[in-house]
Amino acid sequence: MNTWTRLRWMVTARRHPCAFLLVVQLAGILLYPVMEDTQAGRALFGAFGILVLALALWVVNRSAAVNWIAWSLAVPSVLLSVSAAVFDVPMLWIYAHLLESGLYFYTAGSLIAYMLQDHSVTSDELFAAGATFTLLAWAFAFSFSVCQQWYPGSFTAAVDPQSPRSWMELLFLSFSLLSGVGLSDVVPILPQARALVMLEQFAGVMYIAVVVSRLIGLTILRIKPAPADRD
């Protein structure tokens, strides 16, 4: 890669950090099924999670959010994840996932504030809309993971109904709820799980109603011809 190409990539990254976060998260959807089945895959899963956390921190640093809050969530989460993997302490995963969920919620909130503060739609805001959706999906999936570890039997499914749900199943449930489709074979059973599911359903409806509809409205206003142009 020559110098000009590297500079172009650096400029693109500075202009569209949300695009990189969105691409990495969408790539994770394709990679997670492969990474869940083997020990090496689970190690790669942890490394991939750290990459997403780093990108989330980068996005927060570019926004008007309070950076120390994001760092205070990300650093302990990485330390707990590494400790859980190295020392094989499952309990540490609960707190790691709890902190990761908090970081994704905070990052999603900072991106929503970033999109709402402007009165014009830029390409980076469109990428931010997609990245925010995936951040919310990840945040609730981590919340579901914590819920089923604190309250075993929180979720059931058509396949192996008595077993704990895998990460891919919880992420699939989260995307189904957030999008309003609801097409999932994973079902909340305990009241705590159902409460989280209802919160995500509400978040999905409000995200479409407030954020996405506002971006669409601003886009229409930008391309609508002035009255003089219609004469």
Rank of each mutant, 00 (worst) to 15 (best):
A139S: 10
M91I: 11
A65M: 10
D88V: 06
A43P: 03
G182E: 02
L215Y: 01
A139G: 10
H119Y: 14
R222V: 04
P76L: 04
L30W: 09
R194P: 01
S166F: 05
S179E: 01
E125P: 00
D118K: 10
W138D: 01
A209W: 10
V86T: 12
A137L: 05
V59A: 10
L26R: 11
L183G: 00
Y106L: 06
S184T: 14
Q149H: 12
Q117K: 14
L215C: 08
L55D: 05
L177I: 06
Y106N: 05
V23W: 13
G102Y: 12
M91W: 11
R42H: 10
P188E: 04
T219Q: 14
V186Y: 09
A96G: 09
D231P: 08
G41N: 07
T219I: 12
S110D: 04
L21T: 01
Q201R: 12
G41W: 07
F87I: 02
A40Q: 04
N67A: 10
V59D: 07
T156I: 02
M35E: 08
I94N: 08
Q201K: 13
N61G: 13
T3P: 00
I50N: 00
K224I: 04
K224F: 15
Y151D: 11
V205G: 11
Y114G: 00
S176L: 03
T134I: 06
A27R: 04
L44G: 03
V146H: 05
P33H: 05
F140W: 14
G102E: 08
P161Y: 13
S81P: 02
Q162K: 10
L92Q: 00
D118C: 07
Q162T: 11
I94W: 05
G102T: 02
S123Y: 11
A47C: 10
G41E: 02
Q39G: 01
K224W: 15
F172T: 12
A85I: 01
Y151P: 01
L177W: 00
P90V: 02
A141I: 06
